[in-house]
Design a binder for these strands. Structure first.
Lengths: 201, 201
DNA sequence: TTTCATACTGAATATATTAGCACTGCTTTT
DNA sequence: AAAAGCAGTGCTAATATATTCAGTATGAAA
């Protein structure tokens, strides 16, 4: 979506408010009054600009014919990634097991997908086998964060420790050894940062 | 809400579908076509019946002026219960810290509220201090389930074990002893069954 | 300097939509 | 038997709403 002008943004926000409050899009006349315009054409101009820029879709000859094209306006929830096929991107369709009605903005930073946890290696961090890990996509992470990493076609959840050029992926379970990655020899592909846990009992 | 006739229900369902698909209520004409009526008045009759019965609200002289009055259409989410005041019901207003956008039906059975967990007594079950426990209200529970119980104005989360007339509330942490409740002497007030865990990392 | 996007006014028109009146016919309740 | 609710048709009026045409003015890009 191209960048919107501040006036266009105001119009867009009014439309969003309207949908939230009244459960339906506003009429052009309603926008005109709310914005304080003297002519419905002022609104039409903005609407057409918003449509050109991909923010909304206008349905011709239809009352309240404004549709928000926000990515994820009617999304089915967050994708749940189960077993990951070797050599395929994490969010490739064949890895998505299902969609779950979890609010992405419940977590901070926002969750982008859910990963079904396998194994007991993070047990002492309260992350158990079968739990759904809420993950925020990010190629970088801070020291000490729990991350989702890719190692030789294996997806793993571990705590990140970095000392100079060496990264340790530590389990939270004494039965599992830490994995050592020397950044001088190999690269570490981070798939994201763990931002939450959801478990069905 | 009074009971709807099957025809009225069909109209209501079309309206609901319409809102879900198009993100706006339908016009009377759209309903008329969808239902196969020859006259918009057939629809108007149904709409007025639906309004009388409290299923919808009609906004006069407004295009698409149909508002669903479903309970919980704009619900704020699940109540989050924090510290519980002595002698007050769990879901009394002063115990509700906030509302969180969690889908109740994500859990099974349905979650009725969230309880902020205090302490480490359920650590080995992967329930940590600060976690949000999704709880289904229930006065009874099966053996082995994790329950929310009330003991002398204290709310506690424990695993339930019952042998005859004696109930043990077991922690999942060797540092905490089990609590023994003799049903012949005292009653055990169950506030609900744990159905899930949500954690913000 | 011309063109283009933004940001509006003002008036007129076409159409979409709600709303009202007058009916028919069936079933259930009083 | 009458009244009330349900389920419709058919037509017209009123008004809500979108759309089009004709302008003005400003600042940025070509």
């Amino acid at each position: 979506m191209k960048t919107l002008t501040s006036r266009q943004l105001q119009v867009l926000e009014f439309i969003q408010d309207s949908i939230r409050v009244a459960n339906m899009p506003p009429t052009i006349a309603e926008i005109t009054v709310a914005m304080g315009f003297g002519s419905t054409n002022a609104t039409r101009g903005h609407l057409q600009a918003l449509e050109r820029k991909g923010a909304i879709e206008l349905i011709p000859n239809s009352s309240r014919g404004i549709r928000l094209v926000q990515a994820g306006a009617f999304e089915p929830g967050l994708p749940l990634v189960g077993r990951v096929a070797a050599g395929r991107p994490l969010l490739a369709e064949e890895n998505i097991e299902d969609y779950r009605p979890v609010d992405p903005s419940f977590f901070s930073p926002r969750a982008d997908y859910l990963l079904r946890v396998r194994g007991e290696s993070m047990r002492d961090a309260g992350i158990l086998d079968g739990d759904l890990l809420a993950v925020h996509r990010s190629p970088t992470a801070d020291n000490g964060q729990i991350v989702v990493a890719r190692l030789q076609d294996e997806v793993t959840v571990k705590r990140l420790r970095r000392t100079g050029q060496v990264v340790y992926l530590e389990a939270e379970n004494p039965d599992f050894p830490a994995i050592e990655v020397d950044l001088k020899q190999e690269t570490l592909a981070l798939e994201g940062i763990a931002v939450g846990v959801v478990r069905n009992l």
